[in-house]
């Protein structure tokens, strides 16, 4: 069972590494915005699996903290993006 947990965690971490490619290449801000959401979601998944692996349920607090603050980034980025496109002065 531990092997499954570790396999899943490593797989999810490699997903983050792959997501870095989008940060690197872009080409638009929207692509990078989606990458932050990928990081947030994947990080949350890693935390949830780690919570099962380490039998440490307080990790769920960390996961929820990540999750509820991810929306802040989206809205903030949305504002930045909108500003940069010149839709609002």
């Amino acid at each position: 069972m531990d092997g499954v947990f570790i396999f899943v965690i490593v797989f999810l971490l490699l997903n983050i590494v792959l997501g870095l490619f989008r940060v690197w290449r872009g080409p638009t801000v929207a692509d990078r915005l989606l990458t932050t959401q990928l990081f947030g979601t994947t990080g949350m998944a890693v935390l949830l699996v780690l919570a099962g692996y380490l039998q440490e349920l307080t990790l769920l607090n960390v996961a929820i903290t990540f999750n509820v603050l991810a929306i802040l980034l989206v809205i903030s980025l949305f504002k930045v993006w909108k500003k940069k496109k010149g839709e609002t002065p």
Binding site: I16, G19, L20, V23, W24, G26, V29, R32, T35, T36, F39, G40, G43, V46, L47, L50, L59, V62, F66, L73
Partner: peptide
């Protein structure tokens, strides 16, 4: 812009490391 977005990923990696 790359720096800012990599910083997000860095924060995530750091949080997982602390865990």
């Amino acid at each position: 812009i790359q720096t800012v977005f990599i910083f997000f990923a860095f924060g995530l990696a750091l949080a997982l490391t602390w865990v």
